[in-house]
Structure formats: C-alpha cells, structure tokens
C-alpha cells in the first residue's frame, strides 16, 4: 500500500509537468482550433532565452519576466508573419506548417546553444517537500504555479471583456465579427498567450529534464495526451488530465511486469485511448453537435 501511495505521489509530481504543457496546448486549441506541433519547441526556445539572460547576470525573476514578454510578443509575431497568410489554406497544410516551424526552431536552437545538456536553476530549491522523498520543493512549487495559472486563466476567460471576446471568436467567428470583435487579432492574442504559458512550462520543466534542444519532445506528447484526455476545450480538464497521465504512467511502470521505460508511453497512450473510446470528447470536454 505504501508503494502504491508513493507511486501516486510521484505520478502527481511528474503530472505537474504535463499539466503545465497541457494548459498551453488547450490555450492554442481554443484560439485556432487545432493542435500546434511546434508548441514544445517554442517553449524550449523561450527557456533558452531565459537561460542566456541568466548567463549574462540577470537575476532569476528578472529573466522570468523578460522571457514571458519575449514569448508573448514572439508568439504574436509567429502568427502574424507565418500563419496569417495560411488562414485560408486547408487545415492539413497548416499542420505541415507547424512541422516546418518545429524543424526551424529546433535546428536554430541547436546551432545557437548546441546540443549539450545544461543545468537550469530552480527558484524553489530542491530539498524534499514536507519530508517526502518523492516530491521535492521544486515539484511542489510547480504544482502551485500550475494551479495559480489555471485560476488566473479561469478569471481571464470568465470575467474580462477580452477573455469573453476570445471565447466568442473561437466558438462562432462569424457572429463574433458581427458584434465588432476583431477575430483575426484574437487568434494572434491566443498564440501570444499560448507561447507565454508554454515558456512558463518550459522554465519549470527545465530543472527536471535539463535544458537541451530536444527536451520538449517527450513532454509535448504527454501534454497533448493530457489535454486530449481532459477534453481540449477545458483548461481545468487539461490540468486534471496532466495529473492523471502522470499517475497512469507511473503505475503502469510499477505494476505491469516487463514494462520498462520505453513501453511506458505506449501504455499510457493506450489507456487514454480506451478512455476516449468511452468518452469521445474527453473527460471534461464539450460535446460538439454536428449540423448537416
């Protein structure tokens, strides 16, 4: 039993990473209605920027804020320059564009900062949290930040004019335009916010997985899975999904014999798919009604 509770705790700790990333995924899905495959690479690039700033002597929180602003502006710029011209192109062409963006960012980061693994500092320290060997203060801090982000997003979408406008633009673009919402800029804003949330995720994850250009590959897959499991339309679902995926993965690794590190991912994905087969819109997602 103790092993079981310990594994769940460890699962929640890794789940916090996925929850962070899943929030960014949901953010962009709300704005543009599909998944951005380059999301993880954008987050990785932001994290490198903050690392570089710290190398130049900027204190942690200063670098944190500058990176946040940089990512927000960068996300908007990517949308305006690269994806606005593709707004009328087929969806699959847009997906190809995400893959191209992925290749560009990954390869440029590799050239600028090379592929060696770098240490990344944490503002929370890495002592055991409340005497538990499984959760460090950093991981507890990460869970805290994720929950704060979620609350912030909830208030933003429910109680601000611009949050309302973004929701309107995402769910019924034509009607939103008729009441005077600039839907095109709402999409850009969505990109900016997703990039900023992604950069927070990146800066929180980097102390755990270490900083290198490929650090986000695995994390993004789990983030997608978490977002899909929770229901792509719900930030709350994304966070719950993130924790569930973390717990799934840990329990599968511990209790199913013959599952090494490599089979953990397929098993976690298989579990998620079985959930989806029963609940196709995810655990907390809205059911979409189709009209002929």
């Amino acid at each position: 039993m103790e092993l079981f509770t310990n594994q769940i705790l460890a699962g929640i700790a890794t789940g916090a990473i996925y929850a962070c990333m899943a929030l960014a995924v949901v953010m962009i899905y709300q704005a543009i209605d599909h998944l951005n495959f380059a999301q993880g690479e954008m987050a990785m690039f932001s994290t490198f920027i903050s690392w570089q700033l710290m190398q130049w002597g900027v204190p942690y929180w200063g670098a944190f804020v500058i990176t946040l602003v940089f990512s927000f502006v960068g996300g908007i710029a990517i949308e305006r320059i690269l994806f606005k011209p593709l707004a009328k192109a087929p969806v699959l062409t847009n997906v190809a564009g995400f893959i191209a963006l992925f290749a560009i960012i990954n390869s440029s980061a590799g050239l600028i900062w090379d592929f060696t693994i770098k240490q990344y500092p944490t503002p929370f320290g890495s002592a055991p949290f409340l005497g538990s060997q499984l959760i460090s203060t950093h991981q507890a801090g990460m869970i805290g930040v994720t929950v704060l982000l979620l609350i912030g997003l909830y208030f933003f979408f429910q109680y601000t004019r611009i949050g309302l406008a973004m929701r309107a633009a995402a769910s019924l673009p034509e009607s939103a335009r008729l009441v005077g919402i600039n839907t095109s800029w709402m999409i850009a804003l969505g990109w900016g916010m997703a990039a900023a949330i992604g950069s927070i995720a990146g800066m929180l994850i980097a102390p755990v997985v270490f900083l290198e250009p490929n650090m986000m590959g695995g994390v993004l897959i789990y983030g997608f899975a978490a977002a899909v499991l929770g229901g792509l339309s719900s930030p709350f679902g994304a966070v719950v999904g993130g924790f569930l995926v973390g717990i799934f993965e840990n329990l599968a690794g511990t209790y199913i014999p013959g599952v090494g590190n490599e089979l953990k991912l397929p098993i976690a994905l298989a579990l998620i798919i079985s959930v989806l087969v029963v609940k196709p819109a995810g655990l907390f997602g809205r059911h979409i009604v189709k009209r002929v």
Binding site: L82, L86, A89, T93, A96, G97, I99, A100, L101, F102, A103, I104, N106, S107, S108, G110, L111
Partner: peptide
C-alpha cells in the same frame, strides 16, 4: 542548419 533550411523550404512550398 539543415533542419531550419528544410523548414523554410517546406514553408515556401505551402
């Protein structure tokens, strides 16, 4: 920069 060049070429095509 082969990955970046590939990405740029792909963008050009689409």
């Amino acid at each position: 920069l082969s990955g970046a060049v590939f990405g740029v070429l792909l963008f050009l095509v689409i």
